[in-house]
Amino acid sequence: MEEITLASQLLQYTITGITIGSIYAMVAIGFNTIYNVTEAINFAQGEFVMLGGLVMVFFRVTLNIPVVFSLPLTILVVTTVGILLDRLAIRPIRKPSVLVMVIATIGASFLIRGAAMFIWGKNPFDLPPFSGRNPMTFWGAVVQPQALWVIGFLVVVVIVLTLFFDRTIMGKALRACAVNPNASSLVGINVKYMILVSFALSAAIGALGGIVITPISLMEYDRGAMLAVKGFSACALGGMGSFSGAIIGGLIIGLIESLGAGLISSGYKDVFALLVLLVVLFVKPSGLLGSVEVSKIRKF
């Protein structure tokens, strides 16, 4: 048995932090996608992650469908939920102020959480990892193979999204809506449709996060709220609306949480991320990468 040194411990916490931070980054990217188009925070973002995990459990474990097919199927199902959320809860609102939209998404998150409890019950579910449970060791730190999948999927999401926003007409239209919805509709962009697309997109990203993290941390019906809060802290830390900010913010929050839990106190694990959120709001509300000018004209 190897001796556990402080250095190897630190490395262990760092790896754990980056893994969980990747999930927070995915949640934060989901937040930003909707925020950029509607200027509202979707409080149901965490429920997408929870649904991603539990629907995947249904396909993979209950129906025993191989990962290659169950993963896209799960994303399809959760994306449908995201589209329904927009069509049934967001679009019918007659006077869509930011305040009302925030309240509507809180209501929707309750609805989804309650439905998940009905379907899956209160017990946490496990999912077999994509490539076995034999851990690898690096300089005394243990790495689950699934952690590499998590980080890999974050990289894939980032590359695909960057290409989507820079290279496709729809991505550019979404970015235009983010800058100025009124002007976008003047040049022929269907803003309502873009809001739908943003909900679908962020549901898909959330679902992917849930799918890859479930083999590591299990998943149960009420996990969504805390994931949303952490993702939100990541968002605020990186700067609302900034994709690179979301990734940096997510990784930093994950690291702080893992190091704080390991070195200071595990009981206060959830407090660290939230303290970061408070400090950011009070010291630099525009976030690390957000610009002060932009945050001044924002409604949220």
């Binding site: 809060v229 939100f232 605020a236 009981g267 407090v271 939230l274 959120l277 709001l281 924002r298 409604k299």
Partner: peptide, 23 residues
């Protein structure tokens, strides 16, 4: 600090505060 800014920063700050106090 959060109400001096425009927008809904209070929602975020109080959300974090609420969870911290419960813990």
């Amino acid at each position: 600090p959060s109400l001096k800014l425009r927008g809904h920063y209070l929602a975020m700050a109080t959300l974090a505060f609420c969870i911290i106090i419960t813990i």
